[in-house]
C-alpha cells in the first residue's frame, strides 16, 4: 500500500441552480483512514460527497483524485478507484442478493468482455466479508433493513475500489445494525487499507469510528482533525446550535456529546 490513492477538494464551490451550497472548501482525505463528515441538516455534507465522487460538477475549484481533476478522468477509471453508496439506492423488484452484488462489477466489464471468474471471486469475497453469503439466493426486497444495507455495502465492495464513499450508511437502521455496519467498515479499513469517507448523523458514533472528523457548517469547513480535537462543546454549539456538554466516553476515552435541552437537565450542568 505504498501508493494509496489520494482524494482532496481544492477551493471547491458547489451549488444547484441559483443556490450556492458549498463555498471555497479545502478538504484533504487522509489515505487508508476513516473520515467522517458531520454537520447540521442541509449544511452541504451530501453535496460534498457527491462532488467528491464526481456526481456533481464543481462551480469553482476542483476535486483532485491522485492529483488530477476528477471530471477529467474517464468515468470508468474513476469507478474502478472510487466507490460510492448513495443515500437511497434502488433495488430492482425481485432481484437476488448475488445478482445485485454482481452489479458492482459493472466498471470492470467492457461492453463485449463478459463475466469472468474474477467477477465471481469478487462477488463471493464481498458476500463473505459482509456476512451476507447465506443470503446470496434470497430476494433483496424480502430482507430486513440491516441485511439490506449490508448487501448494498457488499455491492460497493464488489467494485473493489480502494476509496469508499458512503452517504449516511446507517440511516433507517436500529442501533445494533448501525454498530454492525460501522464495525464492518472498520474491518475493511483495518484489513484491506480501504480509505473510507462517510457522512454520519450520530455524533457519538462519528467520534468513535472516525480517525479523522470533519465538521461542516453552512457549506464551509468548520474544523477537521482527530475527533477529540474537533468535537468540543464550542464546536457542537457553533455547528449544530445546540447547548451541550462533552465528556470522555468511559468505554473509549473519545468525546461523548450530551445534548442539553430545555427539560430534564440538572441546573448544575448548564
Amino acid at each position: 500500500m505504498s501508493h494509496a490513492h489520494t482524494l482532496r477538494a481544492e477551493q471547491l464551490s458547489l451549488g444547484y441552480g441559483e443556490r450556492s451550497v458549498v463555498e471555497n472548501l479545502d478538504l484533504s482525505i487522509p489515505p487508508e483512514r476513516i473520515t467522517v463528515v458531520v454537520g447540521a441538516n442541509a449544511c452541504g455534507k451530501s453535496t460534498i460527497l457527491k462532488a467528491m465522487s464526481r456526481l456533481l460538477p464543481a462551480r469553482h475549484g476542483a476535486v483532485l483524485l491522485d492529483g488530477k481533476a476528477i471530471h477529467e478522468i474517464p468515468t470508468k477509471q474513476v469507478a474502478r478507484t472510487l466507490g460510492l453508496l448513495p443515500q437511497s439506492p434502488i433495488a430492482p423488484e425481485g432481484i437476488s442478493v448475488s445478482d445485485l452484488v454482481g452489479r458492482g462489477r459493472h466498471p470492470h466489464q467492457g461492453m463485449l468482455s463478459r463475466w469472468t471468474a474474477d467477477d465471481d471471486a469478487a462477488v463471493a469475497r464481498a458476500l463473505d466479508v459482509t456476512g451476507t453469503a447465506d443470503l446470496a439466493d434470497r430476494a433483496v426486497d424480502e430482507l430486513s433493513g440491516g441485511q439490506r444495507q449490508r448487501v448494498w455495502v457488499a455491492m460497493v465492495l464488489a467494485q473493489q475500489t480502494e476509496l469508499l464513499l458512503l452517504d449516511e450508511p446507517t440511516t433507517f437502521l436500529d442501533v445494533t445494525h448501525q454498530v454492525e455496519v460501522l464495525d464492518l467498515l472498520t474491518d475493511l479499513n483495518r484489513d484491506f487499507g480501504t480509505t473510507i469517507v462517510m457522512v454520519l448523523h450520530d455524533l457519538n458514533l462519528a467520534a468513535r469510528y472516525a480517525d479523522h472528523l470533519v465538521a461542516i457548517k453552512g457549506g464551509r469547513l468548520y474544523a477537521a482533525g482527530a475527533p477529540s480535537d474537533v468535537l468540543t462543546e464550542t464546536c457542537v454549539r457553533d455547528v449544530f446550535g445546540l447547548d451541550n456538554m462533552v465528556v470522555p466516553d468511559p468505554t473509549t476515552g473519545k468525546p461523548l456529546v450530551l445534548p442539553l435541552g430545555r427539560h430534564h437537565v440538572a441546573t448544575a450542568a448548564r
Binding site: 456526481l55 468515468t75 474513476v78 460510492l84 448513495p86 439506492p89 430492482p92 461492453m111
Partner: peptide, 23 residues
C-alpha cells in the same frame, strides 16, 4: 441491445449508476 447493460445499472438509481461508471 448494446445500451441494455448500462440501462440495467441505471435501474439501481442514477447516482448508483453514475458511481458505477455509467454516463
Amino acid at each position: 441491445l448494446w445500451l441494455l447493460r448500462d440501462l440495467e445499472a441505471m435501474r439501481l438509481g442514477d447516482q448508483t449508476a453514475a458511481a458505477l461508471g455509467v454516463p
